[in-house]
Design a protein around this nucleic acid. Structure first.
Length: 530
DNA sequence: GACACTAAACTCTAATCCCA
DNA sequence: TGGGATTAGAGTTTAGTGTC
């Protein structure tokens, strides 16, 4: 359909576009709010009258259309706009203006002049150019994960094709904490945790947690001026704001938003008030590797707040360092899209990351992996073992209290995730601090003792210092049911740390020597016993 | 149930095409 | 050349859906 094709009427449109292009203050506006305000300086409120240089009025009909992020706004003061669907629709704009200005119009597209920000500069367009821009932008965004248009169209269509977790043994839904505990043990997760658990009623998990509103108030009150990086989801940028400012942004009514914001790493472990107010679930307290170790600098990753606006999509990823997570929904609704971290799936994930954000290589539909989805609502808690590859969509504004922890039943996957991060070259900001020292401490303080113990057991008359002298008489850990798993992990951990050791720091050739010696002793025993 | 919002359908007019 | 059919464009209404 040809838009504004009449040469005579088009002269009017061209006048409007030229008029605004000639106004420096309009053209130098920093954003659409400022542009709209500057445009107003040249039009009076009563009908559309323009002011010339001398301040005299003259009549021209103009309907100004401001394309502002996720909204399209008209020239009515304080217009909140309507949803930007990247499509010019005459009827929608006409109705919107009629509602805003509460009057009838003889509407013609020849009277529309559109404004948008293009690389921080104001662009003034007629309707035809606006329609062309929308078309090009739709095509461009369809190639980007997670752009606004891709999320609204391709993603939602794709999402409908993903099956839920019913009938999949990897996912267990539990009515309450007691059922969670029972299922966890019954499905043999204690020493090899692989399954995901959703707990519907979180009250028995023995955790302490304020409600969503209290969390938001606390963020404003305690350390409210701390700078936090967050994500402008559709723009793919990482603005910085104070905690207070971010909470304020989060509280913006949906109909006034021009962007969707997300915050994935508001770590609060180091803020005393949060540490006092948020108590980890008993399950996490009991299983956290870090809790069981003596460490010089304990990493602070076990309590963070996630604040996400509706519409945000976080693309497929593994949690940093292959940490396991607990995730308690205080407000809102989110859907997790989950992929089991098998070696094949991880390799495909690594491959997909070479083209991160390109829909042609999107992990969700180009690699043939088996994906399941689970939707979480307020009051539910989700426990996910380390390494699971997942994406998350937020349906409703969400406030979540969550935490990451290393779990000894997930060590293999933690190491695999570390390797994956090395391979895809994740930046330091996307890595768990102290990964190597924590795993070294675990090997040294927990596993090494057990391995040495296997040697000491047979030669029980010796003191610790003499254990290694009993090499020939130690037991083959492979044949002891309670030691077999320890031996497997010890070997794997040693090989890993040996691979990533450095000169200086905590994991070095020198600090690995006792483990190396114990490893050699056990291998010697095994070669003689087989 | 009232209201808001949106997409799509509908009506009307003018321009254009085509054929007798 | 004139008149009916078709198409494009402009303006308005309505049905469906969601929210409060």
């Amino acid at each position: 359909m040809m838009l504004i094709g009449d040469p005579e009427k088009r002269k009017h449109t061209e006048f409007l576009v030229k008029f605004f292009r000639s106004k420096n203050d309009v053209m130098k506006s920093q954003d659409m709010t400022e542009a709209a305000s500057n445009v107003h300086k040249y039009t009076s409120n009563r009908d559309i009258q323009f002011l010339n240089r001398e301040g005299k009025t003259f009549n021209k009909t103009a309907y100004c259309c401001f394309v502002d992020g996720t909204r399209v706004k008209c020239s009515f003061p304080n217009c909140k706009g309507y949803e930007n669907k990247l499509k010019w629709d005459r009827g929608t704009f006409y109705n919107h203006m009629k509602r805003c200005q509460k009057k009838e119009y003889k509407f013609s597209e020849y009277n529309v002049v559109a404004f948008r920000m293009n690389r921080k500069k104001v662009q003034v367009m007629n309707v035809q150019q606006l329609a062309e821009y929308f078309k090009e932008e739709r095509e461009r965004q369809l190639k980007i994960v997670p752009s606004m248009y891709w999320t609204a169209t391709a993603f939602h269509k794709w999402s409908m094709t993903i099956p839920g977790i019913n009938g999949d043994d990897n996912f267990q839904t539990c009515a309450d904490a007691a059922e969670f505990q029972a299922k966890f043990e019954r499905t043999d997760q204690t020493s090899d945790w692989k399954k995901c658990f959703v707990v519907q009623d979180s009250s028995g998990l023995e955790m302490l947690c304020p409600d969503a509103e209290a969390i938001l108030n606390m963020l404003e009150l305690h350390d409210g001026d701390r700078q936090r990086r967050f994500i402008d989801v559709y723009a793919g940028t990482f603005p910085v704001a104070t905690q207070k400012e971010f909470v304020n942004l989060f509280r913006t009514p949906v109909k006034e938003r021009t962007a969707v914001f997300n915050n994935l790493d508001m770590e609060v472990s180091d803020i005393r008030e949060f540490k006092d107010a948020i108590g980890l679930p008993k399950f996490v307290r009991n299983r956290s590797m870090v809790n069981k170790l003596k460490l010089r600098n304990r990493p602070m990753v076990d309590r963070y707040i996630l604040i996400t606006q509706a519409g945000a999509f976080t693309d497929f990823h593994q949690d940093f360092g292959g940490t396991s997570v607990w995730f308690h929904m205080l407000r809102g609704k989110k859907t997790f899209f989950l992929v089991e971290p098998t070696e094949e799936n991880i390799k495909k994930f690594e491959k997909s990351q070479e083209h991160a954000t390109e829909t042609d290589y999107w992990y969700g539909d180009k690699y043939g992996v088996n994906i399941r989805k689970v939707t979480l609502e307020a009051g539910q808690t989700y426990f996910m073992p380390g390494g699971w590859i997942h994406a998350v969509y937020t349906h409703e504004d969400a406030v979540v209290v969550a935490g990451s922890f290393f779990d000894e039943a997930c060590i293999s996957r933690q190491l695999r995730t570390f390797r994956c991060e090395e391979k895809i070259k994740a930046g330091n900001g996307n890595r768990v601090a102290k990964f190597l020292p924590i795993h070294f401490a675990y090997m040294e303080q927990k596993l090494l003792k057990a391995v040495k113990g296997a040697h000491f057991f047979i030669c029980g008359i010796f003191k610790n210092a003499l254990v290694l002298d009993c090499n020939n008489n130690g037991s083959d850990m492979r044949s002891l049911p309670d030691k077999k798993q320890t031996w497997i992990i010890f070997q794997e951990l040693y090989a890993f740390l040996d691979e990533f050791k450095k000169t200086g720091g905590e994991v070095t050739e020198e600090t690995l020597k006792p483990s190396k010696k114990a490893l050699d002793v056990q291998i010697g025993i095994q070669s003689r016993s087989s």
